[in-house]
Amino acid sequence: MSVVTDNLGFLLGGLLVTLELTVLGFIGALLLGTVLAVFRVSPVAPLRWVGAVYVEVLRNMPLLTLLILVVFGLPDVGITFSLFTSAALCMAVFGAAFVCEAVRGGINTVPVGQAEAARSLGFTFTQSLRHVILPPAFRTMVQPLVNIFIGIVLGSSLASAVGVSELTNRTQVLNLQSAQAVVLFLVSGAIYLAIALLGGAAGGVLERRVSGGRGPR
């Protein structure tokens, strides 16, 4: 256990990087993904195509491939970001494809009648999305979004394969220097488990909050 207590600051620093990657990646994914979802349901055909191609490409690309392409490939064409920025960017760009589908899935669960009612009241496309469709859609989106959050937490570990010094990376570095290898991995695993459980619990609270009062409990 001493290897953990001796290097607590180092490990917690790694946890901080993991959390930063996750939070930045998740927020970026939410923003970009929502825009893409609006693209995918919009009346403008080229926007729909952009959304569809983006989702199909990014959802079918392994995250590690994306990371390596961005970190090692982009400098070749004169685009250089810091390692951390590249990794955060990848998490956001990758997560956005899944957020887009979650949002679109949520929109699709709203009964047609609601959209028709909004239209017959004279709401425009944006107005009916903002005031009528998205609020109830958000309720069904919470669970998929929580899954995406956990996916980004776990996915951020891949940044260690390209050299970002986050939790998984620091675990592996410490492991090389110490004799108590298994303890390190158990502690890191427990930390990831805790993040995932907390994320799930927060999602549960949010879900109840969002659906509170309306419909059958």
Partner: peptide, 18 residues
């Protein structure tokens, strides 16, 4: 448990620790 820990961490364990 195994839905909540990163695959890469497990791979490092098999690669470096075990």
């Amino acid at each position: 448990l195994f839905r909540s820990i990163p695959l890469l961490l497990l791979i490092y364990a098999f690669l470096l620790a075990l």
